[in-house]
Design a protein around this nucleic acid. Sequence first.
DNA 1: GGAGAATAGGTGCATATACACGCATCATGA
DNA 2: TCATGATGCGTGTATATGCACCTATTCTCC
Lengths: 138, 138
Amino acid sequence: MSAESQIEPCTCVALRRATRALTASYDAALRPSGLRVTQFSILRRLERLGPTPLTRLAIEAVLERTTMARNLDPLERRGLVKIEPGRDARERIVSLTDAGREAVAAATPFWQAAQARINAQIDFKAVAALADALIAAA
Amino acid sequence: MSAESQIEPCTCVALRRATRALTASYDAALRPSGLRVTQFSILRRLERLGPTPLTRLAIEAVLERTTMARNLDPLERRGLVKIEPGRDARERIVSLTDAGREAVAAATPFWQAAQARINAQIDFKAVAALADALIAAA
DNA sequence: GGAGAATAGGTGCATATACACGCATCATGA
DNA sequence: TCATGATGCGTGTATATGCACCTATTCTCC
């Protein structure tokens, strides 16, 4: 193949593909729990943070605010989180319900299995370093 | 902070965050062209492949078939690609229009700028290797 | 040539992501 | 206290992603 016909690969597209594959892998591992990795990570973060205003939760997750709000929808519908006005009437305080806590506990072994399988093949530090570099470069 | 309060970071969530940041970076760079990086990559691939059946295009891009189909929608609405039945009446042949070719040409410098900025900070080979490892491990 | 398998797509549904815009509430300073 | 800016959210819109299920067409083998 001549040099001219070579196409420079897009770094972003490559990373997006890797992320799709990794997400599918985690979602498959988590399937018995009924949670996706995105949902599990929100619940887990809530468990760690305790009741948290929506915007703060989004900032912690490095997610756009409205993205977080909509990601919470299915969790609220399923009764895993509750969303209530705070003392500041503008705020929405998000917190885990008992069912949400149970869901995290039930899903954690599946998540750990996915983590173990992936981290056996690749070093998390490499991913973290790459993520940091990308976020800094972006 | 005690060891117990430490939370093991989720490899998948870290990668998803990096991908969001990187995608936003490319999309911002491409904004003058009116294309997103996902759209640009489809057009570029089409330019390389020539007229291609939908499923084949999806396989090349490592995208789910229906995802590719729907990602083509806005491109077709804008007249950048055309989708026609093939000799095999089941197939849909996707091809670039002249406007699509022009759009790729116009967007390429912006994409190259994004590539240069990112690849100056991180090695594409590292991303590619990570992607391969993740896809293999997944 | 016809029955059944295989292939190519389409549609419905659900989640994930993010921008633009607007509303309600709170804080601040004159 | 009241105008004004800041803050927190919700909604509309659009794209991105993928599963389950269905239809239409083609192929294969008898």
